[in-house]
Design a protein around this nucleic acid. Structure first.
Lengths: 153, 153
DNA sequence: TTGATATCATTTGCATACGAATGAATTTGC
DNA sequence: GCAAATTCATTCGTATGCAAATGATATCAA
């Protein structure tokens, strides 16, 4: 049927060595699957927060108050995306917003005490999530993988 | 300010060696950024199709007609997601749907001639996208990276 | 100083992504 | 052979993710 058609077309076209395109070998596809697996592991350990929400809290915990836009840059989210994430964290009382005194364009974001409590409680779980995500690799492989992944990111 | 507070809390709590949690070192965060970069490269080369849409077409081209559900399994999308992707491909005339004669639950998906044309035209671009995504790595690093990434996916 | 640019935030529209619930059809297990 | 469990597809709700357009403010440059 369709498979035979494909083979026929292949022979007719005399395509080069690596003729067949296999989706499952493409870096983009595997990257997407690896990311999916990580998100799934994350959800299994931290059910009431998404990875982007966690990233926002963790970064605020790390650097303290900053503008929404700057936060977005630091956690690799565009302005529209970060707004949604911060809106939801604000609705749950984990962050609070205020206006920048000097630059009236800026919206400052900071952890509330509840947000600080939450992130302090969650960071140990996040370490577990990282471990579980990397569990299929040996320690040496993990180091290599993270080095190469960082080059691509 | 907040940074000093963090330092203080750290000293008070006498946390172990790896005390600070750095988001930018976590595998999940870097994975997300690497994926983002790939999608961006994809969009720069193939503007009128998303990676999931391309994946659906490429898989149909590879294996021929199959059920929507089976296709979802093969391209790592849940039922709800694959439905949306197929709906949009159908609306553009790139795939066609039919009912399975025997198993009335199944919805068969196949490429249209236009869909076949499209995917044949796009596969060379996809190879370029893969190359560009992996460009920061040497050939040896690429091989290592893909091997380890596959273990995680 | 003022006109052009740039930055910050918001909004809209579209496209994944997935959990949960539902309904139809099939398969299993006894 | 029939009830229970499973499979396939759909729908709903929520949450990223990004392009593009808009408005407000700030900065730059002639």
């Amino acid at each position: 049927m369709s498979g035979e058609d494909n083979l026929l077309r292949l022979v007719e076209a005399e395509e080069p060595d690596e003729n067949n395109y296999h989706l499952q070998d493409q870096v983009g596809f595997i990257l997407r699957k690896a990311h999916q697996r990580h998100v799934s592991i994350f959800a299994a350990h931290i059910g009431d927060l998404t990875p982007p929400q966690f990233a926002a809290l963790a970064k605020l915990y790390d650097i303290g108050e900053t503008s929404q836009n700057q936060l977005g840059t630091l956690i690799a989210m565009d302005a529209a995306t970060v707004k949604g994430v911060i809106d939801r964290l604000k609705a749950r009382g984990l962050v609070e917003l205020s206006k920048h005194e000097v630059d009236k364009r800026r919206l400052l974001v900071n952890l509330t005490p509840e947000g600080r409590e939450a992130i302090e409680r969650l960071i140990p779980l996040a370490r577990t999530i990282t471990e579980e995500t990397l569990a299929p690799l040996t320690a040496k492989e993990t180091a290599t993988f993270l080095r190469l992944l960082a080059k691509l990111a």
